[in-house]
């Protein structure tokens, strides 16, 4: 770990400049000032104005709860599935991989809407409401958003771990372990998984960014009042603040991850 605070600040400065540029570009291009009647600390949803503070804290935590629970759930399920997949015979593994490519092609929107519609359909047919499928003002829903948000990361993580596992299987240390008479299960759990976790770390940034985009469409379809809804409905200063709310913690995470990865590489070079 060689996390440096100054490089984090540098990154934040760069983000701030970027957001500033982005938020003023539309008005520069089209010559339209951000809604004149809008005050600085307000956002509008369907022509009703709300003040940004302190709503934003509440909504931010709500969104982040969904986000990280979904991420954890996705990671756990993906690892479990990979573990099960390693037990499959070789011919089936190819089929699994092909199936994963098919699943990965489903747009996030498709999954969100399909799950929502099927929940409603089940309710109509059997009268069994699995969980609420739409958020109404104060009634916060957790189950369906988390489930939906975790589907795509699960597929992606599963695919990545599956590939990594395949790569790892041919490495010398596995052969040695086999020769020593260690069981397949023991090797997978104790050695392969640990090595995969560190490689998996490299993909975390892509997955985080991808999930943020998913979170947005999820909030829109499920009508959740989260941070992304605010981001969609703001302009100017409050837009910048909303973006910073997401950017500050996430860039911190990225910075930590990158420094950690850098540390890993140094270790590897030392070992070599």
């Amino acid at each position: 770990m060689n996390f440096s605070f100054s490089s984090y600040l540098k990154r934040l400065r760069s983000i701030l400049i970027g957001v500033l540029i982005i938020s003023f570009l539309p008005s520069i291009f089209f010559g339209i000032a951000p809604l004149q009647s809008m005050k600085l600390w307000e956002y509008t949803i369907e022509n009703r104005k709300y003040s940004l503070f302190p709503d934003i804290f509440d909504k931010f935590f709500y969104s982040m709860t969904i986000f990280f629970t979904a991420l954890l759930l996705g990671l756990l399920v993906a690892l479990l599935l990979t573990f099960l997949a390693t037990l499959l015979p070789r011919s089936l593994k190819r089929a699994v991989y092909g199936f994963l490519t098919l699943l990965e092609s489903l747009p996030d929107l498709f999954i969100v809407i399909a799950l929502q519609v099927s929940a409603v359909y089940i309710f109509k047919k059997t009268g069994l409401l699995i969980a609420n499928v739409s958020g109404v003002y104060d009634n916060r829903i957790y189950f369906f958003p988390i489930l939906t948000l975790s589907v795509l990361p699960t597929i992606q993580l599963f695919k990545i771990t599956f590939l990594l596992m395949k790569e790892e299987q041919n490495k010398p240390y596995i052969t040695v372990a086999r020769a020593m008479g260690l069981g397949n299960l023991y090797i997978t759990l104790n050695h392969v998984f640990r090595n995969i976790m560190t490689s998996l770390f490299q993909y975390s940034k892509t997955i985080f960014v991808f999930m943020l985009s998913n979170l947005f469409i999820l909030e829109f379809v499920f009508n959740l009042n989260g941070i992304m809804t605010i981001m969609l409905n703001t302009q100017g200063v409050s837009f910048i603040i909303t973006v910073l709310f997401i950017a500050i913690p996430f860039s911190f995470l990225f910075e930590v991850m990158e420094s950690y990865r850098g540390g890993l590489n140094v270790q590897k070079e030392d070992a070599a």
């Binding site: 990154r11 760069s14 983000i15 701030l16 400049i17 970027g18 957001v19 540029i21 982005i22 938020s23 570009l25 539309p26 291009f29 960014v209 943020l212 985009s213 979170l215 947005f216 469409i217 992304m228 981001m231 969609l232 302009q235 837009f239 973006v243 997401i246 950017a247 996430f250 860039s251």
Partner: peptide, 18 residues
Amino acid sequence: DIVQATLYIPTAILAYMF
């Protein structure tokens, strides 16, 4: 700078803004 910032803004919102 712009790339750094766009990481945290979903592209759909970005397109919507414009």
